[in-house]
Design a protein around this nucleic acid. Structure first.
Length: 908
RNA sequence: GGGCGCAUGGCUCAGUUGGUUAGAGCGCCACACUCACAUUGUGGAGAUCAUAGGUUCGAAUCCUAUUGCGCCCACCA
């Protein structure tokens, strides 16, 4: 270890150890009845995906949990996979063929799909490679893709089951239509965004009195071409008499009637609303109710169609301008008001969606939602943080039917077959039927549409295990079935809030419907990664921090640690590049401390010595102290990890290792580094710490652990647990196959920790005095102490050398009475009076200023405390412990201020 | 229009069930590379915990209202 660099080189370590883990199969999990199962299914990234900070955070959390449970001795499976992402992927491939001047229609369905598969083979594993860079310990042999054969079977099976249950139906409805992607979208896929727009007031003349008008207000004037009525509120006095009268729809001169409906808001616009039943969900309802005509005015690509006469072929937004011009010319545009409106946008291409009347397939959701509400209500599935429960329940209780058909090609084609001869109703079957059931015709045709991508993702927690197990798969099936039985329900799902409706809710419904059990017990919802100004990271804003850059520059461990340490449970994460220095510095600190320890480890010490069982009583104070602190820390870490407070765990590990183990413990034992106790304990604490930090920083922990193994352990692990069964030790062993340290409660000694703290405070005070009169760091000084009590006197006596070393003294004198020696400055705030001897001139003003400050501070405290203690209610109502605490504190403070005042007098 | 989250030192955030002198990282100031680490060490400065009420012996923490920022949901043309 001597020859090792003073800096940790992450580039060398990371790829090497990742390959090692993968080659040895350490990520693989299989059912083991002797072990508790732990399972996470990855939120499958899109096959088009490129790792961004959101992924980095999401997957770091999952990896920490997986590695933690693996170390705990559970059979931990992190199931990896990729989502075929129908619309997104089709868009990407369409763009690539567009470079050759081709549209997908030019190629035809089959050829185009070939292209998509080609694209997938070539680029589809990018994100997987990137996840490996991050250190993700997924069982890659179980890699799944939502378009895999078996997976597709599961999707079809589910469709057929729902069909047979009568939960799938076809209907004409006004749905969200993306004119760019040219497909229907579910409501969740068309989020509303605010837009700056206008409210246009249009005049519709009466048929029999063309010089008079009804004025309607609209934000989408082009839709007037599809109007089939004007509606008013029946209570509206302004219009009461006009109900039933006929108007002439301008530009295309269609006769439309004025109808009355209570749905109309009298206060909005003019109180009269144009009704476009084919292009507005509300108008659609009105149309149904009042038996109006439904006139579709759009081509699928957003251009106006033949129903619009001379506007046929114009783009919708272009048409808007022309129509407004034409209306203006005719004097039919009354006014234009600025108006903020919100409109649905395609979640894949951000195009403004059009409400569009079309025939689509839907799933009835109410029956599926009911049990899914129950399990969350009853706490069988728990959200972390809790507040998401309400969001989930609220959505589930108001759930709408799910539009599942998509007019794209890349995806699971709907397994519905139509007979082209008898044209009786469709059959839903997994395999293409040989012949029509009614007329025996073989002239069958499959539905052209594919299913919503989320219609496959919602099966993820069990379809990844090859569910359903049919006879064809029997041979392999029995093993796969065991897998599913062992790992399902999975343990925890880790995801972002925007996915709750798309995915989490639907997985719960699917799990209950098809597996008769919940898919996971816990749902961890983490925050969104934002830039330092709180903006979402996005390409268009140019504020992206690329995780791969960070890995390259600072290391994967640094990325992981920094991300986690600032991710408070469920809060958004604000990032700047500098944040990652913290993780890098920590890795370097771990590296150098390890280097120091290995460099100083006595070669004659045998492995048996290092692994020896020792009694607490045999050890000296410092070693007992650090062990107590280690186990105190472990106890807290265990609690934090079990309650998913990963940031707290990370920060505690940081503080323990850096500020206690390095800053105090190693500095102390340095003086007597060859002492067997020190040798033993520094080694043990380091080795155990590495296991604790491993889930957070897998690479550096392995790198150092391997160095330890090679130099010290020769294949005999230092852990008392010994090597896992089947492991011969030696070359193959890894920190990954070690065990999480066992919590040795008896090693925790809070009294000792307090004592150590008071010695450290003493040292800090002395250092402070040194700096107050600018004593150079290398200069040694003489100090006299007066401990107020026997215990403190003893404590000081026992730790004399330690104090001398760490505060660089030439001598330490313990006084037997309270008096200030000549030529000293003092600190009198603790239970030990401290006098620092000086020679020559010192800056007395500096000392005086420090003293003044202390005096005011303590004065204020005394005021507050004596006020409290004089308060009768406090004495009566506060718990006795608190009262005593306050009284003792006050006595102490009064003593302090007395001594300080005396000192201030002497300084004058 | 409903719902949620957040307001704590210059910046980014912690702060468990209300209870000593409110913590950390970064930044800042001073000093220090003979001793594992300058991606370091030592010491220091810096906060009336958004505002106003209330509950309580006691509030950063609980309640109410207000202000500001962010997010989600909703059919207001």
């Amino acid at each position: 270890m001597n020859e090792l660099s003073t800096r940790y080189n992450h580039k060398e370590a990371e790829d090497k150890w990742y390959k090692f883990w993968e080659d040895k199969g350490y990520f693989c999990a299989k059912p083991n009845p002797a072990k508790k199962p732990f399972c996470i299914v990855i939120p499958p990234p899109n096959v088009t995906g490129i790792l961004h900070m959101g992924h980095a955070l999401n997957n770091t959390i999952q990896d920490i949990l997986t590695r933690y449970h693996r170390l705990k001795g559970e059979e931990a499976l992190w199931m990896p996979g990729v989502d075929h992402a129908g619309i997104a992927t089709q868009n990407v491939v369409e763009k690539t063929i567009a470079k050759e001047g081709l549209k997908r229609q030019d190629l035809g369905r089959e050829k185009f799909l070939e292209k998509v598969w080609q694209w997938k083979e070539e680029y589809g594993s990018t994100i997987i490679r990137q996840l490996k860079k991050l250190g993700a310990s997924c069982d890659w042999q179980r890699m799944r893709f939502t378009m895999d054969g078996e997976y597709s079977r599961a999707v079809k099976e589910v469709f057929v089951r729902l069909w047979n249950k009568g939960l799938v139906y076809q209907d004409d409805k006004v749905i969200n239509w993306c004119p760019r992607c040219q497909t229907a979208l579910a409501d969740e896929e068309a989020p509303h965004r605010e837009l700056a727009g206008n409210l246009y007031y249009l005049k519709y003349p009466f048929k029999d009195e063309p010089e008079k008008f009804v004025v309607v207000a609209t934000t989408r004037p082009e839709t007037m071409l599809g109007d089939t009525a004007v509606a008013v509120n029946p209570k509206d006095k302004r219009y009461k008499k006009l109900v039933g009268r006929a108007l002439t729809l301008p530009l295309i001169n269609r006769e439309i009637k004025i109808i009355a409906d209570s749905m109309v808001d009298m206060k909005f616009g003019t109180g009269a609303v144009k009704v476009t039943p084919a292009h507005d969900p509300n108008d659609y309802l009105l149309g149904k109710k009042h038996r109006l005509d439904f006139i579709n005015i759009l081509h699928p690509d957003g251009r106006l169609n033949a129903n619009t006469g001379e506007y046929n072929g114009m783009d919708r937004f272009e048409a808007r301008e022309v129509i407004l011009e034409d209306l203006k010319e005719r004097g039919l545009l009354e006014k234009i008001e600025a108006h903020r409106l919100s409109a649905g946008h395609c979640y894949r291409c951000h195009t403004v969606i059009e409400p569009y009347l079309s025939r689509q397939w839907f799933v009835k959701m109410k029956p599926l939602a009911k049990p899914a509400v129950e399990v969350v209500r009853k706490g069988k599935v728990k959200f972390h943080p809790k507040r998401w429960t309400k969001v989930y329940l609220n959505w589930m209780e108001n759930i709408q039917d799910w539009c599942i058909s998509r007019q794209i090609w890349w995806g699971h084609r709907i397994p519905l077959w139509y007979c082209l001869d008898c044209k009786k109703e469709a059959v839903a079957v997994i395999e293409k039927p040989d012949a029509c059931r009614s007329c025996k015709s073989t002239n069958l045709k499959q539905d052209e549409d594919v299913l919503d991508t989320w219609f496959s993702s919602w099966l993820w927690p069990f379809a990844t295990f090859y569910w359903p197990f049919d006879s064809r798969q029997q041979a392999a099936g029995s093993r796969q079935q065991q897998d599913l039985e062992y790992f399902y329900p999975t343990s925890i799902l880790v995801t972002a809030p925007e996915i709750i409706f798309f995915w989490v809710a639907r997985m719960i419904m699917a799990g209950l419907e098809f597996m008769k059990d919940i898919p996971f017990r816990d749902v961890y919802i983490h925050g969104t990664v934002r830039d330092i100004e709180g903006k979402k990271m996005s390409k268009s804003l140019g504020n992206i921090i690329d995780p791969l850059d960070i890995i390259n520059q600072y290391g994967a461990d640094a990325l992981r640690f920094s991300l986690i340490s600032i991710t408070a449970q469920g809060q958004d994460v604000f990032l700047s590049k500098e944040r990652f220095e913290q993780g890098r510095n920590f890795a370097n600190k771990i590296w150098n401390a390890s280097r120091f320890i290995l460099m100083n480890l006595e070669p004659s010490l045998t492995n048996a010595d290092l692994c020896a069982f020792f009694k607490k009583e045999d050890l000296d104070t410092v070693n007992r102290w650090i062990l107590s602190r280690f186990y105190s820390t472990l106890k807290a870490i265990n609690n934090y990890l079990e309650s998913f407070k990963l940031n707290e765990a990370a920060n505690l590990l940081y503080a323990f290792f850096w500020h206690e183990f390095c800053d105090w413990y190693l500095e102390i034992v340095k003086a007597d580094i060859k002492h067997p106790h020190n040798q033993l304990v520094m080694f043990k604490v380091l080795e155990k710490f590495l296991r604790l930090i491993h889930p957070f920083m897998p690479f550096i922990s392995e790198e150092i652990w391997q160095k330890i193994k090679n130099t010290r352990m020769q294949g005999h692990p230092a852990s008392p647990a010994g090597p896992p069964a089947g492991q011969a030790g030696g070359r193959d062993t890894s920190i990954m196959t070690e065990r999480w340290p066992h919590l040795e409660e008896q090693m925790i000694d809070k009294k000792l920790e307090k004592q150590a703290e008071s010695i450290f405070n003493l040292i800090k005070e002395i250092r402070n005095l040194r700096s107050l009169i600018s004593v150079k760091p290398q200069e040694k000084v003489l100090v006299s102490l007066y401990p107020h009590s026997k215990q403190k006197q003893q404590l000081v006596g026992n730790n004399k050398d330690l104090v001398i070393n760490l505060s660089r003294l030439e001598g330490l004198q313990v006084l037997d009475k309270s008096m200030r020696p000549e030529s000293t400055i003092s600190s009198l705030t603790g239970e030990i009076d401290i006098y620092l001897h000086y020679s020559g001139l010192i800056d007395i003003d500096n000392v005086r200023a420090g003293l003044e400050k202390k005096l005011t501070n303590i004065g204020n405290l005394i005021k507050a405390k004596s006020g409290r203690i004089k308060n009768k209610d406090f004495l009566k109502k506060a718990p006795q412990g608190v009262v005593n605490q306050e009284k003792e504190a006050l006595v102490k403070l009064e003593g302090e201020i007395k001594r300080l005042k005396k000192m201030a007098d002497e300084l004058r």
